[in-house]
């Protein structure tokens, strides 16, 4: 029997991998992937709880999260493209120009 707790553990793992990815990786594309992983962990949670409570709103929320994630990816890739044209690199630590 798979309960909401199992899904919660899986989503916590996914979220953790994503969060660590954002903190340690320097490649901007990888950062974007890590953020997507975190959002998918959220979706998994929402759907598991939606099933547990017998409430559709959680699934509706998951679809909204996917739609927003698509918009976010579009803008993120746009910014990364602009940076690549401007600096010739997508490594976060080579982009820094300002102090601090």
């Amino acid at each position: 029997m798979i309960t909401a707790t199992h899904y919660l553990v899986l989503s916590a793992c996914l979220f953790g991998i994503g969060a660590v990815g954002v903190m340690v990786r320097k490649n901007l594309i990888t950062l974007l992937l890590s953020i997507e992983l975190m959002l998918n962990a959220v979706n998994l949670n929402l759907i598991a709880f939606s099933h547990q409570w017998g409430d559709m709103l959680g699934q509706v929320f998951a679809i909204f999260v996917m739609a927003v994630a698509a918009g976010e990816a579009a803008i993120g890739l746009g910014i990364i493209t602009a940076i690549y044209r401007n600096r010739g690199t997508v490594e976060a630590d080579q982009v820094r120009g300002m102090e601090g």
Binding site: A4, L8, F15, M38, L39, A41, V42, N45, L46, A48, F49, Q52, L57, G58, F61, V65
Partner: peptide
């Protein structure tokens, strides 16, 4: 924030 919201929902 979203992860927090999903836990509150749970």
């Amino acid at each position: 924030l979203l992860y927090g919201i999903s836990l509150i929902y749970g």
